[in-house]
Design a protein around this nucleic acid. Structure first.
Lengths: 222, 222
DNA sequence: GCAAGTTTTTATACATGTAAGGAAAATAGC
DNA sequence: GCTATTTTCCTTACATGTATAAAAACTTGC
């Protein structure tokens, strides 16, 4: 026979939903219907509650998205075999984070939030900082180096994703196309020279090249 | 005596407000009261019209912000004396853009929009691409190099600004502080080592250092 | 002058995030 | 059992961006 629930230690009305349930349900909605469908009301009805009840488990929608990102990172960001050579280790660690985030376009709102501080991502940060130190940087410079790598990585994702988003929700010619069509070759010769190839050029994925360049530059003797 | 207005050529009901007026008024609101106060309703009453009328001159609020950014860039982004040496020219051009954007925190929503394509900024892009070519890169690689610089620059601004924003609207301890307090030194020794200095370290402005490293790396022989 | 067509403006309506205040459900002290 | 206290939940309300449809103010062709 069912034990009466052990006497509660906590004060106040017992919660009917948990932060975890909120996040899990939100994840299901995002996974199955896309992040656009994730509204507080929708989430509330899905969970059998009311919108404002969610706000006792999540500070606001932004925080919910951060939690979703952490959840996502924890589940999909597995530690790869890293090369022994520190420079290459840095590159692979950064590229792994980048790869995991790049396929998850809804994070843009959140990405900018803070540096990636999901516990699962910290290991990668450690690898990067450690690699930089092993290559001769002081711990302080190594942290700055990691920050630079993070700026570059986050910037790449944010710019690329929002550009893509804007392209889909928009059939009119891009402002960019417009501008490149009216380029004055005598004023801006280089841009005029590459104007025709600009779109395909900037569509190429050169994250790794840029990352390598940045790491090389960070490690080069001053 | 006032000439009767020349017979209009355009069809349809004559506009009572112009795109320019919309942007100018929006700018005034942003300048005097901050970007938070810029709402479509507020803008409409300020301009003596109705919210939906604005949508005939501006596709949506996002586009309005893009226009504001362009307007801002056109007014404040003046061409500096650039060094003759191409490498340094790249750095100064990028740093100038960065400096102009960094003081203008409300652009974050927009920055991610696309690359900076205000006509006034194109000159800087030209300088960067040209500098890279002068240093021996092919035009294609130069464009990719510019993109890397832009990713880094935009990422730095976005991350820094939103981190600052979150700090002000939030008095609870940061997630980051939380995480760094619970660091396991045996698992993440480097991070534990710098944990105490993390906040001040990441608060330092190291944009230029990172930029130099990136440019160095882009120009290093492969 | 009138009908048709075109562009701008207005009125109305809806979805969304979330603030404010009160109701509900538990414990603790009496 | 009763009251105070604490925590969670619910109801209501508001500001905001913007979709939709109709009205208004023009030009053009007749």
């Amino acid at each position: 026979m069912p034990q009466p629930p052990a006497p509660r230690k906590t004060l106040g009305r017992p919660p009917r939903i948990s932060r975890e349930e909120v996040v899990t349900t939100a994840r299901r909605i995002v996974d199955t219907e896309g992040v656009d469908r994730l509204t507080m009301r929708r989430l509330a009805t899905e969970i059998g509650s009311t919108p404002m009840a969610l706000y006792h488990h999540v500070r606001n929608k932004d925080e919910l998205l951060v939690l979703l990102l952490n959840d996502y990172a924890t589940r999909t960001l597995h530690r790869p075999e890293l090369p022994a050579q520190p420079r290459e280790r840095i590159v692979v660690a950064a590229a792994t984070i980048h790869g995991a985030l790049a396929v998850c376009p809804w994070i843009v709102e959140v990405l900018t939030a803070d540096d990636l501080m999901a516990t699962s991502a910290l290991w990668f940060v450690e690898q990067i900082v450690d690699g930089l130190v092993e290559c001769g940087l002081s711990p302080e410079r190594a942290v700055h180096g990691y920050r630079a790598i993070w700026y570059y990585t986050a910037g790449e994702i944010v710019v690329r994703v929002t550009a893509a988003r804007r392209r889909t929700e928009d059939d009119r010619p891009t402002y960019r196309e417009q501008v490149f069509a009216d380029l004055d070759p005598s004023e801006l010769p280089r841009l005029a020279q590459v104007a025709d190839h600009w779109a395909p050029l900037t569509a190429e994925d050169t994250y790794l090249d840029g990352l390598r360049a940045l790491v090389d530059g960070l490690l080069a003797p001053r």
